[in-house]
Design a protein around this nucleic acid. Structure first.
Lengths: 204, 204, 204, 204
DNA sequence: ACTACCGGGACCTCCCGTTACT
DNA sequence: AGTAACGGGAGGTCCCGGTAGT
């Protein structure tokens, strides 16, 4: 029964990936040994190596899982009305905040520094987010040409997107490292610094 | 060998730290073995362990070196005139761009996720940068109350600083991971998104 | 490989312990490296560390094996008739002589000087031997009160036991260190010095 | 001035040997590193290697010092009157008890198991003690032929000496390993087991 | 003569991935 | 498909002894 088998297979893979993710969260990727993951997953060494050729592939799977999470978020959100840069950033960060295991996210970025496969994975993810941002910025720029100082909306969006994208890792880093970091204050402050609509400003 | 002079000692330490840094750049902290560093430095195991108790302390030294680099930069730059948020970010990123070994910076951030000493080190560094940003923002906010929507300049600066800080890791990440990343375009685009003075806008 | 049977597991452990023992005999505990033991046992590092957490536990196992060997010997021997001090010593030393790897025995004693676990192990062993000696002395003392100068047999046995016990390490030491040591002469001479029955005296 | 220099040299050597001995006492020979001894002695590595070619020679020196301590003791004590076996043992053990660093003594014996030089050293020491014992036993045997069952005194002394010698290491071992060992009781019990004169028996 | 730094060789341990068996 | 024992290769660290310099 290949169909059931396939489903079970995916289930197993997910189980393993989650076990790995949990250990990466608490001990870091590099310090996590296969034995750790084996223990955490409740499976045996052989079983895991039946699903993943090695430790590297496990990170790839974990990374894929983490990085692909917020991909579509934005496109959906942007459907009904034009979003200001500040609104976009807020949306993104809110997504990360709710879903992403930030320490592992950082570890993946760092590992991507040195592992080409991971870099490619991360690049794709970042590019996709950037693409979504561009797509969401254009209607906002078109609504009112003064917003972009008269520049061509598409060109403006392409230029601005990287800067907007940059705020996400900045948030993650501070969230992860600073013991006194105030998430809510950060979210509210975005509109103080980044171009925003009047109604993006937090009330009160 | 007789007692080495303090200056020479510092020189040696720097030599070792730089050797470690180079290897971290190309292979990553975790994949760099002590043997690598020994080879890269041209010294022997005994020599290195005379200066650093272990591999961990080597990363701390490397981290300290990297993180403390841009500390004062801003304060100096801000002396003569008030700086807009965009100008501050540009300054900071320019500093990072010229001096920081970005991949290692990211590795340190990631490792800080899991190593408390490193976290403390990173936290201090980030806090200092944030402090400098706040100090630089206040005069700008005071110059013209409309810039902050009538809010108290100091409060505004404290709120805005984290967001401005966030752009630096965002830049580093994209710079490190994206093969098509355009540094100059990023620098120019800052003023498109972040509050800026008229003359911060890039010409042309 | 599937789960190994308990019997097989014990067999493996014994194999390793014996390999270690052999090397300890020829090179001493401290100078024996894990690599030596690995080679001697014909197994691999991984295998050995599956059975023993580290080198220290290996000595504990070796020590346990050596020390527990002569434990019951005496009790059995003493069953049918009362034994004189000289007879007891002779029995004990004969046991050591036939079974114990004396150099390792001395190494264990020395190491016990510095390793608390080993000390505890050795203490237990010595105490047990002493206990057995006491038990064997009492009937002999009771048979004829003149033998103990009229002292209470049990008290006398408790007092005399340490002195009798002492002869064993004394034998081991001389056997190990003196190139001209004559085991048989020593055994015969015991009755010359230590309280003995008439028929304990060697004939001829 | 060679004479003064020689004196100073010996002083230095003694200083080093004592430092080594102290560490051997607390940490054991094998676990004591040259760095330990350097620290303990207050000298520097170079200085020590000026006096001893290496760690091995240091143990030899320590061993020589320990082993030669009780050498003459007996001969002197035996001058005025004939000593019974029990009296001899008591004298010897009392000497060890007061002067010898017993843990190191045991370590030396164990190391002698494996280091030929040390074995030779130890052998000499044991032989000398045995010789002294023989010399002290003969007059006692001659005083009253019944004491030796009519055997030739010299032959008897030679045969008995090893057994008497054996009690010393036996004492040291129990003293070192057993937490509940009672030195005084042991000394008193010697005469219960070993051939003794009436007046050797402890009073009371 | 003495200092204290350095060279380099192991040593113990750990960890990844395989393999023999269920 | 899954178990768990095993093979074997480094990795970090330590430690001995030599030696350049006062």
């Amino acid at each position: 029964m290949p169909k059931i088998t396939d489903a079970r297979r995916e289930e197993r893979r997910a189980l393993i990936v989650e076990a790995a993710l949990r250990r990466f969260m608490s001990h870091g990727y590099q310090r996590t040994t296969m034995a750790d993951i084996i223990e955490e997953s409740g499976l045996s060494a052989g079983a895991i190596y039946g699903y993943f050729p090695g430790k590297a592939e496990l990170v790839y799977a974990v990374a894929t899982r983490i990085l692909s999470a917020r991909r579509t978020e934005l496109a959906i959100a942007g459907r009904d009305r034009a979003l200001s840069p500040a609104a976009i950033v807020t949306l993104l960060i809110d997504g990360v905040r709710r879903e992403a295991p930030m320490p592992v996210l950082m570890q993946v970025w760092a590992e991507a520094t040195v592992d080409e496969n991971l870099r490619a994975l991360a690049e794709t993810a970042v590019s996709e987010v950037r693409g979504a941002i561009i797509a969401a910025l254009i209607p906002w720029a078109e609504e009112d040409r003064r917003r972009t100082g008269g520049v061509d909306p598409a060109a403006w969006a392409r230029a601005a997107a990287p800067v907007i994208t940059a705020l996400v890792p900045g948030f993650v880093l501070q969230r992860t490292l600073l013991s006194d970091f105030d998430e809510q204050a950060f979210l509210r402050a975005i509109a103080l610094v980044v171009a925003a609509d009047v109604d993006d400003r937090p009330t009160g």
